[in-house]
Simulated scan of single mutants.
Amino acid sequence: MKAIITVVGGDKVGIIAKVSAFLAAHSINIIDITQTILSGNFVMMMMTDFEKADLDLDSARKALCEDCQSLGVEINVLNEKVFSEMHRI
């Protein structure tokens, strides 16, 4: 299963490192990643693969949000199919 992870918040050192370390620790592969700074806000979107993950999507969402709470960013984890349907034009 593939999932889209979005991270939005104030720019600070370590956001990519912390999120990536969490994903690696749970065998969640990053397929594609993009990030930018918009008006001082850090915005990142990742396409991830949960095929070998040791967490299901809901558990990963909860744990990632808890693990990255100190960063002061908003994190969302959505099934790729749900994300695509939500953003279909």
Rank of each mutant, 00 (worst) to 15 (best):
N41E: 10
L71M: 03
V19A: 02
L55I: 12
V19K: 02
S20F: 05
D67S: 14
V82H: 07
R88S: 14
M86F: 09
L23D: 02
K12D: 00
E51F: 11
A21V: 13
I15L: 05
D32M: 10
D56W: 10
A25W: 07
M44A: 07
G14H: 08
I28D: 01
N29I: 05
A21G: 12
M1R: 10
L23H: 00
K52W: 12
K2R: 15
E66S: 13
N76H: 14
L71F: 02
E51M: 12
G40Q: 04
D54W: 08
I4S: 04
D32C: 06
T34M: 12
D11L: 06
L57I: 13
K2V: 06
I5N: 00
C65E: 15
H26A: 08
C68S: 11
M86N: 03
N79P: 11
F42N: 00
M47G: 07
I15S: 00
D67I: 09
V8M: 04
G72D: 02
K12T: 03
D54V: 09
D32G: 06
F83T: 07
S70A: 13
K81F: 14
D58H: 14
A60F: 09
H87E: 10
V73E: 00
A25S: 14
D67C: 05
D32R: 11
G9I: 00
D11C: 02
F50Y: 07
D49L: 07
S39D: 14
L64T: 05
M46H: 03
D56Q: 12
V8T: 05
L64M: 11
F42L: 00
V77D: 00
V7I: 13
M1N: 08
I75G: 01
S84E: 15
H26Q: 08
M86S: 04
D32V: 09
V13K: 04
M47P: 01
V82E: 11
I31A: 11
I5D: 01
M86E: 03
L78P: 03
I28Y: 05
L71S: 00
I16S: 06
I89S: 12
I37Y: 04
